[in-house]
């Protein structure tokens, strides 16, 4: 059995608003093996970014346990947390707003190295510079850019700075929150290949948060499909794409636009849009948009059950052995 680096148990994050309680993340449980990638997929408002941030306690979870290398980090003090963040990093979605515009590339990458005292004591400024250049080379940034500011660089290069900054502290685990969605396709491929290479060379563990199913399929070992704060399906990537069971997963897969002539006709259409995450009642959150129904649809929140080895589904219409009683709605 592979070693688990992260284990999340019953993670919840509720935000209090004037209108009521927003259930952004509602009881999510998963684990990731060392060196693997977990993809979290879903549309806006499904809680994927909140989940990513809760893992690093950039947002404090409402309840639940987050075990990092066996240690529950939700119980750590601020100081303890600061120490452990060295091992867990995040790459943000927007390379434009996640870099300090008044810091040069050198300052941005050097800061975490200094803060976390990565270099042995007695190291000189020259050592620090050497380390920064090393990191820049790793992510494919030319050394001559060391004194440039973010506004002088394009999106792809900025994202590379974000990656170098995350790598600077030599983490074991990185949350990648939509790292390529702000980039053009030709640049997207460059960054995806870079992340894959880094994972291979350094044995990194990733959480890959995205709305793009083609990207997540390419990148992940396991995929978690979320809908309004709940996991609706969890499976190894291949299984999920070959045999999706939850009606929402089916619709998401069918919404992928395949770049081939004559493709993309006769897709599954979902009715309506995401319902409100405010104080959701105890029922299947997807039922209103679902194209299917069964006798049990109104019987409370469906539990996430294992229907085949490593394949979990939360749908009343899918039985414990994967048999389904889905009927098309009129």
């Amino acid at each position: 059995m592979a070693e688990k680096i992260i284990e999340v148990r019953n993670l919840k994050k509720h935000f209090k608003t004037a209108a009521g309680m927003v259930h952004a993340v509602d009881d999510i449980t998963f684990s990731i093996n060392k060196g693997e990638t977990l993809g979290i997929v879903g549309e806006s408002g499904c809680g994927k970014t909140t989940t990513g941030r809760c893992l690093l306690r950039l947002i404090e979870p409402t309840s639940g346990e987050i075990l990092f290398n066996g240690q529950d980090i939700t119980k750590l003090s601020k100081r303890g947390m600061n120490k452990i963040r060295k091992d867990m990093q995040i790459i943000f979605q927007d390379p434009y707003s996640s870099l300090n515009p008044r810091r040069t590339v050198f300052e941005t990458i050097a800061e975490p190295i200094k803060h976390n005292k990565i270099l042995p004591s007695g190291s000189t400024k020259a050592d620090l510079e050497r380390r920064v250049v090393e990191l820049m080379t790793t992510v494919g940034l030319a050394e001559r850019l060391i004194n440039t500011y973010p506004h002088e660089l394009d999106g792809g290069r900025r994202q590379r700075i974000g990656i170098a900054r995350a790598l600077a502290v030599e983490p074991q685990f990185i949350v990648c929150d939509e790292p390529v969605s702000a980039l053009d396709v030709s640049i997207q491929a460059q960054i995806l290949n870079l992340l894959k290479e880094l994972q291979r060379d350094r044995g990194l563990t990733f959480i890959f948060i995205t709305h793009d199913l083609a990207v997540v399929n390419h990148f992940s070992d396991d995929i978690l499909v979320t809908y309004l704060g709940k996991v609706v399906e969890k499976a190894p990537s291949e299984t999920l794409f070959e045999n999706p069971m939850h009606p929402y997963t089916k619709a998401l897969l069918s919404a992928i636009l395949i770049p081939e002539a004559g493709a993309n006709r006769g897709r599954i259409q979902l009715r309506g849009e995401l319902s409100s995450p405010l104080d959701p009642p105890d029922e299947c959150r997807f039922a209103k948009r679902c194209n299917y129904y069964c006798a049990d649809c109104d019987k409370g929140t469906p539990p996430l059950i294992e229907v085949a080895p490593r394949h979990f589904v939360a749908c009343h219409c899918v039985g414990p052995n994967g048999q389904n009683s889905l009927k098309l709605k009129a």
Partner: peptide, 23 residues
């Protein structure tokens, strides 16, 4: 060709992405 090769292929998850070099 470069645009097509930069896209992840949904039917072949192991296929390598071939980015267009440069900017």
């Amino acid at each position: 060709e470069g645009l097509f090769n930069s896209l992840p292929n949904i039917k072949d998850r192991k296929a390598e992405l071939i980015p267009i070099r440069g900017l």
